[in-house]
C-alpha cells in the first residue's frame, strides 16, 4: 500500500513559547523544532501498515528549506522518501490542503494519513479539506485502523465514545493521540536517512492558488492565572459563586 504522510514542523511541546511584543508571531530564537506529535503518530501508523503488508511511505511537508530536518527524522524512523514543497510564505490551512491534494494527484497514494491537528495553531482542518478536494472518504480522530484488502475500518474518538466506520481506499485518515506510540529513530535508521530521496518542489510551480484567505491579526499570551483563595465553608462558596463569579 502506498501511503502519503503530510507532516508539519512545530516548536517542541516542551519549549516555553513567548509571543513577540508586537503580537505578529512567536519568538523563534532558542526554539527547538520537532515533528508535530500527531504527525509522528501518523508516520508510525503508516510504517506499521507498511511493515504488515508491503508498500511505500512517502512524507511530504510544505515549508522552508530548514523543514528538511523533520523530513530526515521521518526518514530515519523508516519512511522511504520525502517531498519538500518549498515556500517562505506562511500559508493557511486551505493553501496547504490544495498543495497536498495536488501532490496526492501526482503520487496517487492509496491512503493519506496525517495528524488530526498541529499543536501550534490547532486548526484541525487540513485532513478534512484534502479529503473533500480529492472526493475521498475521510476518517478523522482515528484511534485504531484495521485493513483487509482494500477495505479499511477505523475506530474514531467522538464525543462520549467510540465510533467505527468502514470505507474503501483511497481515503484520508487523521491520527488521534491513542492510535499508537511512535518509535524512536534508531542509530542505523538515522545513518541511512541521508541516502534516501528527498525531493524539493517549489510551491509556486504547482499551479495552485496559495493566496491566503485567513489573516492572523494578533497573537497574545494567555492571561496570567490568578492565585485562588480559601473559603471557610460550603455556604460561603455557594454564595461567592452566586454573587461574585455569577455562575449559579
Amino acid at each position: 500500500m502506498k501511503i502519503l504522510v503530510p507532516i508539519k514542523r512545530v516548536p517542541d511541546p516542551a519549549t516555553t513559547i513567548r509571543v513577540l511584543p508586537d503580537g505578529t508571531g512567536i519568538a523563534t530564537d532558542n526554539v527547538k523544532w520537532v515533528i508535530n506529535p500527531f504527525c509522528e503518530i501518523a508516520i508510525e501508523e503508516a510504517l506499521r501498515i507498511k511493515e504488515k503488508q508491503t508498500g511505500e511511505v512517502i512524507l511530504v511537508t510544505v515549508g522552508q528549506s530548514t523543514w528538511q530536518e523533520q523530513l530526515r527524522t521521518g526518514l530515519a524512523m523508516g519512511a522511504d522518501r520525502a517531498i519538500l514543497v518549498k515556500t517562505d510564505a506562511a500559508l493557511d490551512s486551505l493553501a496547504i490542503a490544495k498543495i497536498l491534494a495536488k501532490i496526492a494527484g501526482d503520487e496517487k497514494p492509496d491512503l493519506i494519513i496525517l495528524g488530526k491537528q498541529a499543536i501550534d495553531d490547532d486548526a484541525n482542518q487540513v485532513g478534512q479539506m484534502v479529503a473533500e478536494m480529492l472526493g475521498w472518504p475521510q476518517a478523522t480522530f482515528a484511534s485504531k485502523i484495521e485493513i483487509a484488502a482494500d477495505k479499511i475500518s477505523v475506530m474514531r474518538e467522538v464525543d462520549g465514545g467510540l465510533e467505527t466506520i468502514a470505507f474503501k481506499i483511497p481515503a484520508v485518515i487523521t491520527a488521534d493521540l491513542r492510535l499508537n506510540e511512535p518509535r524512536y529513530a534508531s542509530l542505523p535508521g538515522i545513518m541511512k536517512a541521508r541516502k534516501k530521496e528527498l525531493k524539493e518542489i517549489a510551491a509556486d510551480s504547482l499551479g495552485v492558488d496559495l493566496a491566503p484567505k485567513l489573516k492572523v491579526k494578533t497573537l497574545a499570551a494567555p492571561p496570567k492565572r490568578q492565585g485562588g483563595r480559601k473559603v471557610a465553608s460550603a455556604q460561603e462558596m455557594v454564595s461567592l459563586l452566586h454573587t461574585e463569579a455569577k455562575v449559579i
Partner: peptide, 19 residues
C-alpha cells in the same frame, strides 16, 4: 535494544547496521 546501540556499528555482512 531497538536503537541499535550495539548492532549499529557491526558490519552488514554480520547482520549489523554497517555504520
Amino acid at each position: 535494544w531497538q536503537f541499535g546501540f550495539v548492532s549499529g556499528a557491526i558490519p552488514e555482512k554480520f547482520g549489523g547496521g554497517g555504520d
